[in-house]
């Protein structure tokens, strides 16, 4: 349940949303990403409301302007790593050849070179998360949403992963990271704390409209 929850994320910025389990941080992310519809309030993207869009248009928004990274990657085990990365492009109607070619370009920068044809089951946890990050970024989204992206990783791998994620998210657009991990939050530009469904500014430039 959310109440009086609000935040603004600027282009080129990454924001961490922190809070205890059940505080509503994931629900906030789902509302901002068009996965859930808030009962009240507004969600704006580049000044335009997206919370009142049809289900079809919100789907298109997720496909074309948003990227997602989740705790357990949510890679499709049936597809090779490079095909998983290409998935958003394939869903957008890009030809398989082009989608895979564009997806493959992300493997070297993310330290995944040579793992393109591996299935998710053949990757380590850290590698899986980096594939998920590549998938989130491959369509050059305006916003990358990450929900506990390091929750299943050890601290070293987690630190590397979040550094990669925030760095790339800043370059392609903006990033919103939901986490209960202070180290992950510290890697973001600012932090918004959420408690009992209410947001409170924290960190460097906390802002809640």
């Amino acid at each position: 349940m959310l109440a009086e929850a609000g935040l603004t994320v600027h282009r080129g910025e990454t924001v961490a949303v922190t809070g205890s389990s059940g505080s509503g941080k994931s629900t906030l992310l789902h509302c901002l990403a068009g996965i859930l519809m808030p009962d009240e309030g507004q969600v704006l993207l580049d000044g335009e409301r997206i919370d009142d869009l049809s289900e079809e248009r919100r789907t298109a928004l997720r496909r074309n302007r948003f990227g997602f990274v989740f705790q357990f990657g949510q890679l499709l085990p049936e597809l090779a790593a490079v095909e998983n990365v290409a998935l958003p492009l394939l869903l957008a109607g890009v030809s398989r050849r082009e989608a895979v070619a564009r997806a493959a370009q992300w493997f070297d920068p993310l330290g995944l070179a040579g793992l393109e044809q591996r299935r998710p089951g053949q990757l380590s946890g850290g590698q899986e998360q980096r594939v998920a990050i590549a998938r989130a970024l491959v369509a050059r989204p305006a916003v990358v949403f990450a929900d506990e992206p390091t929750g299943a990783l050890d601290s070293v791998t987690g630190g590397q992963t979040v550094a990669l994620l925030t760095g790339l998210a800043r370059r392609t657009g903006a990033g919103l990271v939901v986490t209960h991990d202070a180290e992950v939050a510290a890697a973001c530009d600012r932090t918004i704390a959420i408690r009992d469904g209410r947001t409170a500014a924290a960190g460097l430039t906390g802002a809640a409209p």
């Binding site: 996965i35 789907t59 997720r62 948003f66 949510q74 998935l87 869903l91 998938r135």
Partner: peptide, 15 residues
């Protein structure tokens, strides 16, 4: 599970 993942990443109902 698989279809939900596809929906998450922007697959339409028709897809």
């Amino acid at each position: 599970e698989r279809l939900a993942t596809l929906r998450l990443f922007g697959a339409s109902r028709r897809q």
